[in-house]
């Protein structure tokens, strides 16, 4: 039983990270039906910036929490700017172009960001300074660390704040209006270009936080770390119903838990014919099954609000 609890804790932590990154995908998709494949790279840049700041500040004798907060505070604006620049340069000129054209620019942007990061931070995996000492707590025989708790709390807080903003503020209403029909929204006096840019910026800011959390959790940062994470988060977004905010959260958490339980139990369930080597297959099969039986994703709707 303690093993099971432990696997659920593992899955929840992983899922929370997926969810936060997935929100970036789903917001952008919801508003302009674009898969921003370069979103994973923004997560990586966030982690890298934080890495540099922490390395610079760590010997200064500041309390560890302050160091990490400053690092995150530096990573967020950089990533936000990056998100804005990406939208401005690579995606905005392509509104109204065939649907796949922005996909290719996204791939281009992704290659560019990766190799810039490689030029700046080098090729080696960077040991992310462990300024915050990991402490484990006992929960029914399982261990949960302070970093895991922070990830869960911060993710939940960010998701709640985002939901409040989208559903309770005037700007959120503008976002939803733009998502439903950009022309009419424009006629209603909404500056859709600004709304779309803001969507990218918000998504990038959350990606920065996700990057810092991931790097801190795993203790490692590398210029290739963005792509695999982005892929999983994208799956999570689709699983929940792309374009749907609660869907992305649900999809992320679900994917994380499915992966953890899959890796943990698939071997025993199949008499070791399949092992943890099929962990990713397990996640993809769940995704495919869900989509085959519910083609719009778990919470997605064909018609209706998307934000």
């Amino acid at each position: 039983m303690d093993i099971f609890i432990q696997q659920v804790i593992n899955g929840l932590t992983l899922g929370a990270v997926y969810a936060v990154v997935a929100l970036g995908y789903t917001m952008v998709y919801g508003i302009i039906q674009l898969i921003n494949f370069a979103h994973g790279e923004v997560v990586m840049i966030g982690a890298m910036i934080a890495f540099s700041v922490i390395v610079a500040l760590a010997p200064g004798g500041l309390p560890p929490l302050v160091v990490v907060l400053i690092a995150t505070g530096c990573a967020i604006p950089v990533c936000m700017f990056l998100g804005y620049a990406m939208e401005r340069v690579a995606y905005r000129p392509l509104r109204g172009a065939p649907r796949l054209a922005p996909l290719i620019t996204a791939i281009g942007v992704s290659i560019i960001l990766q190799h810039f990061a490689m030029m700046i931070w080098g090729r080696s995996p960077l040991p992310f300074p462990q300024v915050i000492t990991t402490v484990g707590y006992d929960v029914g025989g399982a261990t949960i660390t302070n970093v895991q708790i922070v990830i869960l709390v911060v993710s939940t807080a960010m998701m709640t704040a985002l939901a409040l903003m989208v559903y309770r503020t005037k700007f959120g209403a503008a976002m939803r209006a733009t998502a439903q029909n950009p022309q009419i929204a424009g006629l209603m006096g909404i500056d859709t270009d600004r709304v779309i840019a803001a969507t990218f910026v918000i998504g990038a800011g959350m990606a920065a936080v996700a990057g810092v959390m991931v790097a801190n959790y795993y203790g490692i940062a590398h210029y290739t770390m963005g792509a695999p994470l982005g892929l999983k988060a994208f799956c999570a977004a689709v699983l929940g119903g792309i374009g749907n905010l609660p869907g992305a959260m649900l999809g992320g958490i679900l994917l994380g838990v499915v992966e953890a339980l899959g890796a943990g139990y698939i071997g025993d369930l199949t008499g070791n014919w399949f092992g943890s080597n099929y962990q990713d297959v397990f996640a993809f099969i769940v995704l495919i099954l869900v989509l085959v039986f519910r083609p719009q994703g778990l919470l997605g709707e064909r018609v209706g609000e998307r934000a």
């Binding site: 093993i3 432990q6 696997q7 593992n10 899955g11 932590t13 992983l14 991931v214 795993y218 490692i220 290739t224 770390m225 695999p228 992966e259 953890a260 339980l261 899959g262 890796a263 943990g264 139990y265 071997g267 070791n272 092992g275 943890s276 080597n277 962990q279 990713d280």
Partner: peptide, 22 residues
């Protein structure tokens, strides 16, 4: 024990390790 596998990009080993720990 039965072989456990990740990939060359895996950074989250917790699920596998939890099973192994058991």
């Amino acid at each position: 024990l039965a072989r456990e596998k990740g990939t060359d990009k895996t950074t989250d080993w917790k699920a596998v390790l939890t099973k192994v720990k058991g």
